[in-house]
Design a binder for these strands. Structure first.
Lengths: 332, 332
DNA sequence: AGCACTTAAGTAACCGGTTACATTGAAAAT
DNA sequence: ATTTTCAATGTAACCGGTTACTTAAGTGCT
């Protein structure tokens, strides 16, 4: 791996000159430029990005920190983040926090020298942690999918509760009153907000909340499947199922299909996410779209903007959008 | 962001001493160590990894280069890679090559100073490119999911052709002779190897190859759906479908379901991958497992090993494994 | 020819660490 | 008491770049 010094020797010029032609800064005589170029060429010289970063305090890298790689949206998030970063010619460093807020905090602080900005998709960090990060870090931080005290941070979030209300509204409009609910993890804000959406929708129509209709899932298909099996096994009566993501809805669909219950004729199902697979199941799943890719793209673009520009707080809120397909029909 | 010099001043010692206590190297008097520790503490000092990397020529980072983020396995690959790297306390830098071999080549060369090893999941780079990379790079490179001249490189690969033979064998054993084939991109080695598997299996049983039974797909559900619709529309006669991944198989399943053709009673379907969703469709999809997560884990571990150790060529080959579920039955 | 001004290139400090080597002081050995 | 030994620390070079400042060589103008 040749360094700038090798180029200097071969071209017979100083480091400064090589640096100038590499970066296209300052004045360099055409003939010198050519000498340097051909030296670089024949050595296969490539500037060491680490050294550049150290010298300029610009890394052209953005950090992505997630609480846990097993999170359900992580795949598409990472994919979109990688694509968006790449598009802007930034590198992406990926880190997870092992679901441990302190560890995660430390990881983020570590990234400071290595990134120009960091994107945080956390479900374990408290608001207080994030607050502190914001104060301590000299680089901007963009928080994704998290509702935070307004106007305090750069953030890209999703209206969780409203999205669930949209789902419930659709079910209620179709006459459903006994609506089973398959939740996600209840330790994090998303799960809580969504459950609130469920409860509030019920309350608004004066339908009594029935604990037996609520089952915990973990966002994976299997848990939706199991939750639904339990519901059936327990002999609970319901006409519709709302699941806190499409995967679990699809798992529930499978469970119903197995025992010969027809969807949507006997039971309606609605999910959230608009997972690409949802429209390939039979019946095609009705859902509320959660535009995680768009949100991620927005977050990365915001982060990149913040690398160079001022610090006025930006925040974007995304709303769910009902996608009617075939898994919901009016109750008989 | 405080530097080592700040710590020096506060603790009243030299850079060397601070470095020693940070790294636990050399001899340091206990009382000095404490002074330094408390200085670090009160400053919230964290060593600059960039500077460390530059000085030690150790980055504790591995690079992951893929041809294109849209590749079908990319999500799970990235997820597993991120998790494995994290587990070994390495950072991960992710880059894609825009499906352009020269750009990709350049990206990899760029990574040299930033990583201790790189993992390459490429479908555009030629063997010759990889050969050259191997010669030029001073860091090890692990090639994943690619069959290369034996013993030349570190690699983790999958027996593509054999896997398809496994699928075909299962269909043929069940009496199928008119087997439609939904392929993937045919520009890359994987697609070609798989199609060979299809052809050779047919040839071994003396079944004539019929071009009309072969349709190109792009590994996404929609393309499987469309390919199947075309097959039906063209009035081609077949008793089974083999698809070059589960997604397309599932798309085909959907297409058949839509037109009222029963799977597997009328038509059998087999896929490859063992996508997590496959067992939630009805009927549950019979498939051949492609252990992409295991392979990725292996590749990352290999890469990490190579960071420190010698250079004897390692290569791992994975085989497909038939997972019989419900989408294949004997032909009538 | 003499002067100011511009262009082209070099010098050296700096980014934030590591590390080979030198130095110091005290304990151990003679 | 003197020498040896070694633990503890400092000095300075180095990693591979960037960049403010300086210097040298042209160029144009009177």
């Amino acid at each position: 791996m040749s360094t700038i010094l090798d180029v200097c020797k071969l071209a017979g010029v100083s480091k400064a000159t090589v640096s100038r032609v590499v970066n296209g800064t300052g004045q360099v005589k055409e003939s010198t430029r050519e000498k340097v170029f051909s030296a670089m060429q024949s050595l296969g010289y490539r500037p060491n990005r680490l050294a550049q970063a150290l010298a300029t305090n610009k890394t052209h890298t953005i950090g992505l920190v997630v609480s846990d790689f097993d999170g359900i949206h992580f795949g598409s998030l990472l994919k979109q983040a990688a694509a968006s970063a790449e598009f802007a010619k930034k590198q992406l460093i990926v880190t997870d926090g092992h679901n441990d807020p302190n560890y995660e905090y430390e990881m983020i602080m570590q990234l400071e020298a290595q990134c120009d900005a960091v994107i945080l998709y956390s479900r374990t960090l408290t608001d207080d942690h994030i607050q502190r990060l914001h104060q301590q870090l000299t680089i901007p931080i963009v928080v994704i999918n998290r509702d935070l005290p307004e106007q305090l941070f750069h953030s890209v979030s999703f209206q969780q509760e409203d999205a669930v209300k949209l789902m419930m509204g659709h079910l209620l409009d179709n006459g459903h009153r006994q609506i089973a609910c398959i939740t996600g993890h209840m330790m994090n804000p998303t799960g809580v907000a969504r459950l609130n959406g469920y409860k509030h929708s019920l309350a608004e129509l004066g339908v009594e909340f029935n604990e037996k209709l609520v089952r915990n899932g973990d966002y994976h298909m299997k848990s939706g499947y199991q939750a639904c099996k339990e519901l059936i096994h327990d002999g609970i009566s319901f006409t519709a199922i709302i699941a806190f993501n499409d995967c679990m809805a699809l798992g529930a669909l499978r469970a119903l299909t197995e025992v010969g219950i027809k969807v949507p004729e006997q039971i309606s199902i609605i999910g959230i996410d608009d997972d690409p697979v949802s429209e390939f199941f039979t019946p095609r799943l009705t859902t509320v779209k959660l535009p995680i890719a768009d949100m991620t793209k927005q977050a990365v673009e915001l982060a990149i903007t913040l690398c160079d520009e001022t610090k006025a707080t930006h925040s974007y809120q995304y709303k769910g959008q009902l996608i009617e397909r075939e898994s919901v029909m009016p109750v008989k």
